[in-house]
């Protein structure tokens, strides 16, 4: 199991488009993927779950991947966050 903390760096926060991108990438992997924000924990492969987090600019998320390809999953998701989803 891998845990990693990241911060939302794009100004618009995790709205529909970034949420879709996260779910699409996470769904490629076999590992379980959860995201925690405050007292909320959701399945990172569920679009409604990811959007329910309503993670705004500057907020902190904990990513948890668990499974055979957990490293790759975390790496790709981290890259996605770092790219600010192609936004500002």
């Amino acid at each position: 199991m891998i845990r990693k903390t990241i911060v939302i760096e794009n100004k618009l926060g995790m709205h529909a488009r970034p949420a879709t991108m996260i779910v699409k990438i996470a769904s490629k992997f076999r590992s379980e993927f959860r995201i925690i924000k405050g007292d909320m924990e959701i399945n990172g492969k569920s679009i409604m779950g990811v959007m329910t987090l309503a993670a705004e600019y500057g907020s902190e998320l904990e990513l948890i991947a668990d499974g055979v390809d957990e490293e790759y999953l975390i790496r790709e998701i981290t890259e996605l966050f770092a790219s600010k989803f192609g936004e500002e």
Binding site: G13, M14, A54, Y57
Partner: peptide
């Protein structure tokens, strides 16, 4: 969702 995100970012 977008409005929620903006409001929260402003508050922060």
């Amino acid at each position: 969702l977008q409005k929620d995100l903006q409001d929260k970012a402003k508050l922060r």
